[in-house]
């Protein structure tokens, strides 16, 4: 078994509500996860469930309220400034928005070269050579190096972002909705590129997406988040074939497919409740079709099932539900 490259232990991130110090938005509320080297973790949930906050906290772009993040054996929140800069080169991120994730005033070469010139002591001809290799690796022409980002399509920009993220061969790459704003054909190409690069360099990914198709296609494990909490977490095959948490089930049921008629698509009633005053008990009970009295009273404990998945639901936990 490979070792854990990233361990998230009971991570919490609360934002104070504007003008008040007593109320908090609990964006991430006690999440624990482990990622092994060479593994792909898919993080799923509706918008506002805390996926992005979780990632920002893991990347140390915001400070956590509570909890620990151990990356490659180092506690991320107790690093000195210098150690932090060193560590940064091992974690890279690809953002959702290909239009604003690249500086519009820099040419592609400078964009891709930035991590190299910040983190390494390569001279300019070495950097030029490396940039060309990287562009070729992600399937872009060499001449592209001297163009501006706006001269490329959304899919190509995402390739540039991937080239930049991989320039230092990081140990962990976070892909935040990598294909949500590009078309299906480019999406397919980007996804298979990401997959190929993973095989080639034995990379570790965290893939965030609200598209279950993308997540199931990419990842070895899936973590489903709802209102800052993990509701189900386990092997992709297990969760994909037999989702057990009612929320996971609802998510999968809502995907429109060529083979399903609209009348057979199940919809989830209501909206995600506010995370300022989340409902008591199980946070999902307001929209859950199986909800019973106990669900609105006590919060379900997170248990590990025989097949290795973690789940937090009274229906699964209690045999006499």
């Amino acid at each position: 078994m490979a070792e854990n490259i990233l361990e998230i232990k009971n991570l919490k991130k609360y934002f104070p509500v504007k003008g008040q110090n007593t109320e908090f938005v609990k964006a991430v509320d006690g999440v624990s996860l482990n990622i092994k080297r060479g593994e792909v973790l898919g993080l799923v949930g509706e918008s506002g469930c805390g996926k992005s906050t979780l990632v920002n906290t893991v990347l140390c772009l915001t400070q956590p309220t509570e909890g620990e993040v151990i990356f490659d054996g180092k506690n991320m929140f107790s690093l000195s400034k210098k150690e932090m800069r060193e560590t940064r080169k091992d974690i890279q991120i690809v953002f959702q928005d290909p239009f604003w994730s690249l500086n519009p005033r820099m040419i592609v070469k400078d964009i891709v070269a930035e991590p190299l010139s910040v983190q390494t002591k390569m001279n300019s001809s070495e950097i030029s050579k490396k940039v060309e290799e990287l562009l070729e690796m992600v399937g872009l022409p060499r001449e592209g190096a001297y163009k501006y980002p706006h001269e490329f399509s959304g899919g190509q920009r995402q390739r540039i972002a991937i080239a930049r993220a991989l320039s230092l061969m990081p140990k962990l790459v976070v892909l935040d909705e990598p294909t949500s704003s590009i078309d299906v054909v480019s999406q397919a190409q980007i996804l298979s590129l990401i997959n190929d690069l993973k095989e080639k360099f034995n990379l570790t990914y965290i893939v965030i997406s609200h598209d279950l198709g993308v997540v199931s296609y990419m990842s070895d494990k899936i973590a489903v988040m709802y209102l800052g909490k993990l509701v189900e977490y386990g092997e992709t095959d297990l969760i994909f074939n037999k989702p057990m948490h009612p929320y996971t089930e609802a998510l999968f049921a809502a995907i429109p497919d060529i083979d399903t008629d609209i009348d057979n698509i199940k919809t989830l009633e209501g909206n995600v409740p506010s995370s300022i005053n989340p409902p008591p008990g199980c946070k999902f009970h307001t929209r859950c079709q199986f909800a019973k009295e106990i669900c609105s009273r006590t919060e379900p404990e997170t248990v590990i099932l025989d097949d290795g998945r973690t789940i937090a639901c009274h229906k699964i936990n209690n045999t006499n539900f």
Binding site: E86, R88, K89, I93, S101, N103, P115, V118, A161
Partner: peptide
Amino acid sequence: ERPFVKAAQAMGTP
């Protein structure tokens, strides 16, 4: 707040 600045921060740019 733009991702390209976040990306620069995440790669340890001074």
